[in-house]
C-alpha cells in the first residue's frame, strides 16, 4: 500500500498536505502526532471512507478509488471510533456481518466456521448471544475486532483503537493488535495517541505534524528525544524497557 502526494482540504484549510509513503507488508504501522495533524484523515482516505482532494492512494498496485468496493472489502478492513448502532444486535450477528463481502446475507457453513473462529480468537464465546449495547467498552471493542477478523482481510486499519479504553483494556487491545500481525500475518495500520504503545507494540512509526510526515521509520529511528520534541513541542526523556525505547514526558 502506498500513497503519493495525498492531499485533503477542508474549507480551504489543507489538513493533509502532499503526503507520500509506502506501508511495508506484514508489519504493525502506527500513525502518531498531535491533534489535528491529519492521521485519521489519512487512514480515512486510504480506506475510501474519505474522498481525497489530490494525490493517489494505491492498494496492491491499483488506486483505492478504482477498486470495486466489494472486492476491496475482502482485502482491507477499517474500524473507526464512530460505531453507534441503533439496532439490537448480538455479538454473533455483528461478527457475522464480517462475512458480508463474501456471502451477502446468506451465510454458508464456511462463513459460520469463520465467525465461530473469530469469536473464539477474541475470547467472546461466552458472550456470543449477548447484545452489543449491553457489553462493556472493552468487550464491545473486542467484538468489533472479531468482526474484522471474520472479514479475513490482509490489511486492517484501526482509527484510535485504544480511545476511551482504560489502561487494562488498552494494553490488551495492543496485544491483540500484535497478535493480528504475528499470528494471522496481517498488516495493521493504526492511529494512536499514546506514543509508548506505538513504541512498544509497533514495527514502524509514522509521525504527522500539520498534515505532513515529520518522521517515518522503525521505532528506534523515530523514538528519540529530538524527533519527539520537534513533533509534540514538549521535552522528552527516553528510557529502555525490554529493549524497546519508551518516552517520559510531563
Amino acid at each position: 500500500m502506498r500513497s503519493d502526494a495525498l492531499t485533503k482540504i477542508y474549507d480551504g484549510k489543507t489538513v493533509v498536505d502532499h503526503i507520500s509513503f509506502e506501508i511495508p507488508k506484514g508489519k504493525v504501522v502506527s500513525f502518531i502526532g498531535p491533534n489535528g495533524a491529519g492521521k485519521s484523515t489519512v487512514i480515512g482516505m486510504l480506506s475510501r471512507l474519505i474522498a481525497r482532494d489530490g494525490g493517489t492512494a494505491e492498494f496492491e498496485g491499483k488506486d483505492v478509488a478504482k477498486w470495486k468496493s466489494g472486492e476491496l472489502a475482502k482485502r482491507l478492513a477499517i474500524l473507526t471510533q464512530t460505531n453507534n448502532i441503533q439496532m439490537k444486535l448480538t455479538v454473533w450477528e455483528l461478527v457475522a456481518f464480517g462475512r458480508f463481502p463474501y456471502s451477502g446475507s446468506h451465510l454458508t457453513e464456511r462463513d459460520n466456521q469463520a465467525v465461530r473462529q473469530a469469536i473464539e480468537y477474541m475470547e467472546l464465546t461466552d458472550l456470543t448471544d449477548s447484545f452489543i449495547d449491553e457489553l462493556s467498552g472493552g468487550q464491545r471493542q473486542r467484538a468489533y475486532i472479531a468482526m474484522v477478523i471474520a472479514q479475513d482481510t490482509e490489511y486492517v486499519l484501526l482509527d484510535e483503537p485504544t480511545n476511551n479504553l482504560d489502561i487494562y483494556h488498552a494494553s490488551n487491545m495492543m496485544k491483540i493488535i500484535r497478535r493480528l500481525c504475528d499470528e494471522l500475518g496481517k498488516t495493521v495500520i493504526l492511529v494512536l495517541h499514546e506514543i509508548n504503545y506505538a513504541a512498544f507494540y509497533s514495527d514502524v512509526i509514522c509521525a504527522f505534524v500539520d498534515g505532513k510526515i515529520a518522521a517515518f521509520g522503525s521505532v528506534k529511528e523515530v523514538m528519540n528525544p529530538t524527533t519527539l520534541s520537534a513533533i509534540y513541542g514538549v521535552d522528552f526523556e527516553m528510557i529502555e524497557v525490554n529493549g524497546k525505547p519508551l518516552s517520559i514526558y510531563y
Binding site: S47, R48, L49, K68, S69, G70, E71, L72, A73, K74, A77, I78, L79, T80, T82, N83, N84, I85, Q86, M87, L89, F97, G98, F100, P101, S105, Q151
Partner: peptide
Amino acid sequence: NVITLGKEQAINLG
C-alpha cells in the same frame, strides 16, 4: 441490514 451498522461500517463491508 448492513446499512444499519452505520456509514463507515457499511463502506468497510463493500
